[in-house]
């Protein structure tokens, strides 16, 4: 599990002592050596138990509208030689290196920061939904309250305050690891060096920056599923509380 102390180890070493560890730079986005980070996340699926703590922590931290998600953990039941087993697949914005959501925006409201975080300027977005259509990972939605595009920000407000993303901080199994892939000493760099990692939908050419350890081949791209939760959900019809939300 990444703790803030583990995360800062690299910076501490470079700052040269415990004094610096006690008074680190308030923003994780401004490393002591002045380099520009490239943020990424590693999902260690061997450790994910599908508890949805990250889903809830994200919603709480970012005030995500009830019923919408910036991240969630789909759970599949897949066949193996030992019979059916559950497979967790935490999903979120991949903060892609080649994000198709950005060039389609007609008002330049969606953009990528120098450290790789894909963000939406909520004051500029007209809520046209074009970026929602363009994201191959369904990582965006239109927020009911603001009428603008909403998505994972890697909790940029927390990074600026020297904290880790809420989902990482809360993950009980330590399955979510966040860090700077330009720092060879970071936890993510070490995991990427030591493990065979995969990205989702590599054929989309988006170069995602969320990496998975232990991702089953059958979950990498289009997942072939038979009637499960989605089919049940579809059969149930519209959510009963939709009207309540729209009236609120």
């Amino acid at each position: 599990m990444t703790t803030r102390r583990d995360f800062l180890t690299g910076a501490v070493a470079q700052n040269g002592g415990t004094e610096a560890a006690q008074a680190p730079s308030p923003s994780l986005r401004l490393p002591a050596d002045g380099h520009t980070p490239r943020w990424a996340m590693v999902m260690d699926l061997r450790k994910c138990i599908g508890c949805q703590a990250c889903t809830v922590a994200c919603a709480m931290e970012n005030n995500v509208y009830e019923g919408s998600y910036r991240t969630h953990v789909p759970v599949y039941e897949i066949e193996t030689e030992f019979g059916p087993v559950p497979a967790m697949l935490p999903r979120m914005c991949n903060h892609c290196e080649n994000p198709p959501c950005i060039p389609v925006c007609p008002v330049n409201a969606t953009f990528q920061t120098e450290d790789g975080i894909v963000l939406v300027d909520q004051d500029v977005c007209v809520g046209c939904g074009y970026c929602v259509q363009a994201c191959p990972y369904e990582a965006r939605h239109l927020d009911h309250d603001s009428g603008t595009a909403d998505k994972c920000t890697f909790c940029v407000q927390r990074l600026d305050a020297g904290l880790l993303p809420a989902c990482v901080e809360t993950c009980v199994g330590g399955a979510r690891v966040f860090g700077d892939i330009r720092d060879p000493a970071s936890a993510v760099s070490r995991l990427l060096a030591e493990h065979d990692t995969r990205n989702l939908k590599p054929e989309a050419g988006t170069r995602p920056q969320v990496y998975y350890i232990g991702l089953d081949d059958r979950l990498v791209s289009e997942v072939e599923i038979e009637a499960g939760a989605r089919a049940l959900r579809q059969a149930a019809g519209p959510a009963p509380d939709t009207t309540h939300h729209e009236e609120a």
Binding site: G67, V75, G129, L219, I225, A229, R233
Partner: peptide, 16 residues
Amino acid sequence: MTGIDLVSVDQDFAWR
């Protein structure tokens, strides 16, 4: 078949 999905979330259409 790969498997079945055990969790589903609702999403809205972006273009109405």
